[in-house]
């Protein structure tokens, strides 16, 4: 015996909500996310000013760079958010082992792993201070090389751009990194490598890395759909 075809009974509804569509952060993103840089004081504390905190283990680093548009001009109104693991490769988040389930705290007290960086309105230069993250466990048992996740918004960017900063002085870890190895055009992997330029990694003399981002054109940075 066959069942009668009754689609209104048998066809289940799969109607998830749609994600709210993105709109550009616009030129005045600083008012909302970094009002001191817009030119006024309103909050007791602005968020995202201290990524690593005072207690984090690992080498102290500073990342410096600029974001360039397709004409080669620096983007002077960009805002970048940083998200990174600590030196042990752990994120301060409830889904990291040992966090929030009664286990030991997995990251150092005061380690946020998150920060906000804005470019200088005249030069387009930006920098942030943090610690160098450790390698992070990836999918299927593969380890990811040390990296910092970046999210870039500005006027003219309709959906925030995701990319990763890797460290040029980690050649072995980078060579086996599953994400870098996804980049078919091997020359483009270099767009994600921050280059060490000075410093030792101590608190007094942080290791300085240079990392420029090219939104478009020659040397276009690899951006991810995460």
């Amino acid at each position: 015996m066959t069942l009668p075809y009754r689609p209104h009974f048998l066809q289940q509804s799969l109607t998830p909500l749609k994600e709210t569509p993105s709109q550009t952060a616009g030129p005045y993103v600083h008012i909302g996310l970094a009002p001191g840089d817009a030119g006024f004081q309103i909050y007791d504390t602005e968020l995202g000013q201290d990524i690593a905190g005072p207690n984090a283990a690992g080498d102290r680093i500073r990342v410096e760079g600029r974001v360039f548009d397709g004409t080669g001009a620096p983007v002077r109104d960009v805002l970048i958010e940083v998200w990174q693991a600590n030196a042990a490769g752990l994120y301060p988040h409830p889904e990291t082992p040992g966090t929030g389930d009664g286990g030991p705290e997995s990251t150092e007290n005061g380690f946020r792993g998150w920060g906000r960086v804005i470019s200088n309105f005249e030069s387009g230069s930006w920098s942030f201070d943090t610690i160098k993250p450790g390698g992070v466990a990836g999918r299927n048992g593969r380890s990811m090389a040390p990296h910092i996740n970046l999210w870039i918004v500005a006027r003219g960017i309709n959906v925030g751009l995701n990319t990763r900063l890797y460290f040029a002085d980690e050649p072995d870890a980078n060579a086996s990194d599953p994400v870098l190895n996804l980049i078919e055009q091997t020359d483009r992997r270099a767009t994600l490598l921050a280059q060490p330029v000075s410093g030792t990694g101590s608190a007094q003399n942080p290791r300085v890395y240079q990392f420029d981002i090219h939104l478009q054109g020659p040397g276009e940075t690899v951006f991810f759909d995460i």
């Binding site: 397709g70 983007v75 693991a85 409830p94 998150w114 003219g156 309709n158 478009q216 276009e220």
Partner: peptide, 28 residues
Amino acid sequence: YKTSVSRSPRLPLLSLENTASEITGPTF
């Protein structure tokens, strides 16, 4: 939206399966 012309990547985004780096995020 004219500003998007020079600020838009021309190459496709590289699709990435979620890892710990994407499924975690800052807490407040």
